Amino acid sequence: MVKIESFSVEKWMDQYEHHCEHNIAETCCASISIDQLRELSEDKGREIFQASKPLTYGSIRGSDELRSNLARLYSAKATNPLSPDNILTTPGAIQANYLCAYALVGPGDHVICHYPTYQSLYDVPKQLGAEVDLWKAKAQNQWVPEIAKLKSLIKPNTKLIIVNNPNNPTGAVLKRPFLQELIDVASEHGIIVMCDEVYRPVFHSITPADSGFPPSLLSMDYRKVIVTGSMSKAYALAGIRVGWIASRDPEIIEQLAEARHYTTISVSQLDEQVAAYALHQNTIHSLLARNIKLAKTNLELLEKFVLKNDDACEWVKPLAGTTAFVKFHREGIPVDSVDFCEKLLKETGVLFVPGNECFGEEFKGYVRIGFVNHTEIIKEGLDKTTKFVRKSLDDVKLAT
């Protein structure tokens, strides 16, 4: 029997997200409806669903329209266009990430995973019998891990390096020069690199004019790269459960496709039609503009909150994505994150995610804040949190 550790962040969200007044733990850009999606399109007469189409399993590897739209996005500014045949769709990015581990690693293999990050990225390879080392990033280095440390972690049996860019929970970005060094190290040893890019392209605090602006890892000149993505975070459509895997290596795609037959068979035709509509050229630009504007607006509110409470909290300001990792303390001593979050929720109805419970016990005092929900929810929630910090922080336990 596979030993499955408790998936702490999902367990926390399952327990509390439907029992809070202000959800500032949600990591998706504020979700939209089908009607709102249509309003964002430049072609409002275009149908989202083909109502007369029989609801068979559909295209096993993903609909032609959806994969063509994705291929167009990955081909933009790339030297070599990506073929739709190099993409597989999945029910969400969590299944895409699971499938990569399921197909590529097992007992006797070694995996290196960027950390902190979403728990399944390192725990699923462990469940499958692989040895996993965490490639740790630190706040004092802007949450960017060190290439020298990566080199020291590599073993003769290292099969896979996993990174998350932009990062959950920190909102940090691995920039272009760093990515090139990563690719250079991986190619020297022939190691596959998998990058979870679900928060791409919500770049709210870095622009393409920046020399370090990170391309998709798929655009780097290395065939043994896999990227995963989703409609949930950057595209505000978590409810349709559509994700994908893309690689320039046909052998990797075929290996994943073989494994996929044992898991999903296909993705819902209805979901794929909505995703294809959202990623169409008539819709995607206004959809992303809406979400990035929301991120910028709300990040200003969060930055003001941190400044207002700088005697009780600190952070590394995120550059991209929808999350921030904020550390709360009393006179420099970190608070107990779980006690902080539970008391905050009970007294104010505001939901955060405790860092040491959901991302690693070393993250004492940290909470993850999802700041790209509706602006009023963020504003009211942060205002209530400020009052809580002023009134009740002394009643919160300190971390041990």
Rank of each mutant, 00 (worst) to 15 (best):
A186G: 04
N141Q: 14
P145F: 03
I154Y: 05
D109E: 04
K126H: 06
Y115G: 04
Q140A: 15
W143V: 08
N164C: 14
W143M: 12
C195F: 09
Y122M: 01
P156L: 08
L179G: 09
N141D: 15
S187V: 03
C113G: 06
A148T: 12
P156H: 06
Q142R: 15
Q142M: 13
G108W: 07
K126W: 02
L99C: 01
L160D: 04
Q180M: 01
E146D: 14
N164Q: 15
Q119N: 07
P125S: 01
P201I: 14
V185K: 06
H204R: 05
D109Y: 09
L153K: 09
S205F: 02
R176G: 01
G129I: 00
L179F: 12
V185D: 02
L174K: 03
I112L: 01
D109H: 06
D196L: 10
K159P: 07
N141F: 15
V193C: 09
C100M: 08
T207G: 01
I112Y: 02
I112V: 12
Q140K: 15
L160H: 03
S152A: 15
V132I: 04
K136Y: 13
V193G: 02
V111M: 00
S205Q: 10
W135D: 00
T117V: 09
L99Q: 00
N168E: 11
S120L: 15
L99G: 01
F178G: 04
A172I: 06
N165A: 10
E146Q: 15
A137C: 10
D123Q: 14
R200M: 12
T170G: 07
A148E: 13
A186V: 03
P107N: 14
L128C: 06
P166W: 09
